[in-house]
């Protein structure tokens, strides 16, 4: 550690340690979340879920991961090889970069940037690019349709998402995530901005491509959507990115609305993780409760209901702040 501080400086050493920590977190989080998803879905359908592999299926996901590593990597004949190879790697770029500014506690943050929330929102849009790359390069009609839907869906949820986040930023007056959390020391913003919280959760579900908005990979229409042609570890990378993306969306929800690391007795990191996994559980609950919406229903819903509501919320927030 001392050697690293001498050679890289404090900021560089934090970066290296943070990168290693984030890689470990990404892997462990995905292993845990996939097990949790299978257990939550199972109990909602009145069945036990994975039981035989480890205690209550605890090492089921590890078996899945080892199996996927041992699978054949198929590159179909007619694909656009460089892009097909690059897409599962590119999907990790926004996911890893977003961890740069997420405050796990008052001191557990890799880089406390003054553009924090804007940085995350800007990079999360990049994930759509890699989905488009995957769908387009696969040279498969189902993959292309999935990619096209993903891009159109992005237009639908991104605007209400930004406007919703804007109303929180208006209250705090800062883009810094640590400032936003510090402003919620006495009162969480979910109590002051309940409409914004609901809008954010809806948009986050759409952003992570999960049911009821899992239109890009709708199984019953599009085989497996944009990753139809991916096998083995490449497919596993898409899965890993999806679950990490869920973690990030829930972390932003915890930071913006649920008071981040604030909470009694337990240390800040524990409170933060409890809140994050609570929001993730909420998203899993949605997935196994609601049927998939049709594509035009999502677009209509986003443009005719979410955007006007988000604008109204922003306007009322601005008025209250001005007249207070």
């Amino acid at each position: 550690m001392n050697f690293m501080v001498q050679t890289l400086g404090t900021a560089g050493a934090t970066m290296v340690v943070g990168l290693i920590g984030v890689m470990a977190l990404v892997a462990v989080n995905a292993l845990f979340l996939i097990w949790m998803e299978r257990k939550v879905s199972a109990h909602m359908q009145l069945r036990p879920g994975p039981m035989e592999v480890g205690w209550h299926g605890a090492i089921q996901t590890i078996a899945d991961a080892i199996k996927l590593m041992g699978k054949e990597l198929i590159t179909p004949e007619e694909v656009d090889r460089p892009i097909f190879w690059l897409a599962p790697i590119v999907i990790f770029l926004p996911v890893l970069l977003s961890f740069l500014v997420i405050p796990f506690s008052a001191s557990w943050i890799i880089r406390d940037m003054n553009v924090g929330i804007v940085l995350i929102l800007a990079f999360s849009t990049l994930a759509v690019l890699s989905i488009l790359m995957a769908g387009w390069s696969s040279n498969n009609k189902y993959a292309v349709l999935g990619a096209i839907r993903s891009v159109a869906q992005n237009v639908a949820y991104e605007i209400p998402l930004l406007i919703t986040v804007m109303s929180i930023i208006l209250m705090v007056g800062s883009f810094k995530l640590t400032d936003i959390v510090a402003a919620q020391e006495r009162l969480w913003f979910v109590l002051l901005q309940p409409v914004a919280f609901i809008l954010y959760i809806i948009c986050a579900t759409a952003e992570t491509n999960r049911a009821p908005f899992d239109i890009p990979e709708a199984e019953s229409e599009l085989v497996a959507g944009f990753h139809t042609e991916y096998s083995g570890m490449r497919f596993a990378l898409f899965f890993l990115a999806e679950y990490t993306n869920m973690f990030i969306c829930s972390a932003i929800a915890a930071v913006l609305f649920l008071g981040g690391w604030h909470g009694p007795i337990l240390p800040g990191v524990v409170w933060f993780l409890i809140k994050v996994y609570f929001v993730i559980f909420l998203m899993m609950w949605f997935r196994w409760t609601f049927p998939r919406t049709r594509f035009d229903q999502l677009i209509t819903f986003a443009w005719k209901i979410l955007i006007p509501l988000a604008f109204a919320n922003l306007l009322i927030t601005a008025l209250v702040l001005k007249l207070r």
Binding site: R38, G49, P50, G57, A63, V223, A224, H227, E229
Partner: peptide
């Protein structure tokens, strides 16, 4: 695969739609 018999207990309940991802 459904509730009463639950193939997922043995880790075999993930019915993949694409042949590229199934064993």
């Amino acid at each position: 695969g459904a509730s009463r018999f639950d193939l997922d207990r043995f880790g075999a309940g993930v019915f993949r739609p694409s042949p590229r991802q199934s064993d």
